[in-house]
Nucleic acid binder design. Structure first.
Lengths: 109, 109
DNA sequence: GAATTACATAGCCACATGGCTAATCAATCG
DNA sequence: CGATTGATTAGCCATGTGGCTATGTAATTC
């Protein structure tokens, strides 16, 4: 049982407003570091840290060509989040159904 | 536009392994504080803080009856996460399609 | 009514996080 | 070549976060 879920890490990466906004921007297509940084009134290095967090979390990849680094989304990451949420919401709703059934049953008595 | 997205807050709540596990446990149905705390080798007050974080984030509600507090999931929260992920993944995949089309077009020349 | 149980509050501490400036490196432009 | 631009590295600092112990309070149980 050496297997820790990677999801808390993904969530952590998305828990910062700056990083969250970056992901939203990237959903519109890849962008350079400076394009991504532009909307955020923040010093370059501070912003870079955020990008590194996103990349270490696996939400984002990047390639550097010449002096420009182009960053893009990794769809698998979003997919795994979606799968997890879907599964747990489903379990929960199933439970609510059983509760509803129980209450209805109770009502009859 | 005074409207900040609530999602980073939700993600923050899920970014801690303990809290993440609590949510997973709660997907199986409501539970008391001590039932939730049991699997986590951690002092009571430390664990309580986590529950409070989850509650402030809106992922969880609780009612105290007698001396026992019962905690349950708030499905809306998971739902809003799912909706966000779905939307952004969709945008991204649409983009990939356009890229594919572009590359195919390029191939012809 | 005394002891136990189930949470809760207060306060402390170590470390992580998020921001900054200054300085560097490498590619491109004039 | 020299200047500029885009990204990066190296520190520094304030604040937040996650853990603890000690103590408190309210509901049950014996």
């Amino acid at each position: 049982m050496a297997n820790q879920s990677p999801l808390p890490g993904l969530f952590g990466a998305l828990s910062d407003p700056t990083r969250f906004a970056v992901v939203e921007q990237l959903a519109g297509g890849p962008a350079s570091v400076s394009e991504l940084a532009a909307p955020h009134d923040m010093a370059g290095p501070s912003f870079l840290k955020h990008l590194n967090v996103l990349e270490r979390a696996g939400l984002v990849t990047s390639v550097k060509v010449g002096r420009v680094r182009t960053v893009s989304l990794v769809p698998d990451a979003l997919e795994s989040i979606e799968a997890w949420v879907k599964a747990h919401r489903a379990r929960w709703e199933h439970r609510l159904d059983r509760l509803g059934a129980f209450l209805a049953e109770d009502e009859k008595s």
